[in-house]
């Protein structure tokens, strides 16, 4: 006897509802157990899942690496700006350190120079290729500065004041051909007159042909010109031109001062004491008793 369709469906539905209930009851007691059908389905699904997961990851990576790069670009821009700012600050700190060192050396120089000095800041360099002039700003004591006063740094002689206007003055550099400085080679005592070589940042010292001077020898101011204090560094002899005949010979001198990097200079206000014309000639006789020296 065949069951009516409705009854058959009802029975089937009841069975279908009973199956999960029974499975659920069993599954709750042993949740880790899998039948061979379960394993078959899961094993069949796993490779497909792997492929899709890899594809999804690839798409995700693509998104993060390329599409989402707009954020990276912004971050990169921000970091670039920050890096540039830090570089600027670092450069500024390095410059300040360098200036502090220069100031320290200038301070040391002011102590060694036996005259009153003024510190001046370089504010400009020559605009004409035919002159070696710098412009400096005097922080104070502008009315004390006169043309011809020597200008020095710790490394050596810079030049002399050419003209003064207000708180500023132009300094004729020692490497200008117009400049003239009496120099001496301390090792041999050979003296000469120093002038700049036109178009170059070097000097030429004219000395007696018989005076001994050699390459690598240090040259300093002699103090005989009444402008520069003695023993200020000038430079090192780089070449000696020894003529076959004549009274003079020339020695090319590389300056000890880096004229391209001048920042602060010292103006020597008081001229050095005039050289004693009797120096080396007068014989001092030690007196004895209460007698006066002769």
């Amino acid at each position: 006897m065949a069951l009516p369709r409705r009854a058959r469906d009802a029975l089937l539905l009841a069975a279908l509802l009973a199956v999960p209930a029974l499975v659920l009851r069993a599954g709750t007691r042993a949740p880790s157990e899998l039948t061979w059908v379960d394993r078959l389905v899961l094993r069949g699904s796993a490779p497909v899942q792997g492929v899709i997961t890899r594809s999804s990851s690839w798409v995700g990576d693509l998104w993060r690496r390329y599409v989402a790069l707009i954020d990276v670009q912004q971050e990169n821009s921000r970091l670039g700006d920050e890096n540039a700012r830090l570089r600027r600050e670092l450069a500024r700190a390095q410059l300040l350190t360098q200036r502090a060192g220069e100031m320290e050396r200038l301070l040391g120089l002011r102590k060694t120079v036996p005259s009153e000095t003024l510190v001046a800041r370089v504010v400009g360099v020559e605009t004409s290729p035919f002159y070696r002039v710098i412009r400096v700003k005097l922080d104070r004591g502008a009315d004390e500065v006169r043309p011809g006063m020597p200008v020095v740094v710790s490394a050596g002689v810079v030049g002399s004041v050419r003209r003064v206007f207000g708180a500023y003055c132009d300094v004729l550099l020692a490497v200008d051909p117009e400049s003239s400085i009496d120099v001496v080679a301390p090792r041999t005592g050979a003296q000469g007159t120093l002038r700049g070589i036109a178009g170059e940042y070097r000097y030429r010292a004219r000395m007696l042909r018989t005076d001994e001077v050699r390459e690598g020898e240090e040259i300093v101011t002699s103090g005989n010109d009444g402008t520069y204090p003695r023993d200020l560094a000038i430079g090192v002899v780089s070449k000696v031109v020894q003529p076959e005949a004549g009274l003079w010979k020339d020695a090319e001198i590389t300056p000890s001062v880096d004229f391209a990097r001048l920042r602060e200079v010292v103006v020597v206000l008081a001229p050095p004491p005039p050289p004693d014309p009797e120096a080396g000639k007068r014989v001092t006789v030690p007196h004895r008793g209460l007698g006066t020296p002769r």
Binding site: L17, P20, A26, G27, P31, V41
Partner: peptide, 18 residues
Amino acid sequence: LADLFAGSPKGLYMTVYI
């Protein structure tokens, strides 16, 4: 299948889906 993928006790989603 949902139970297998969800890691739930077998029969939970079966019951609910029916």
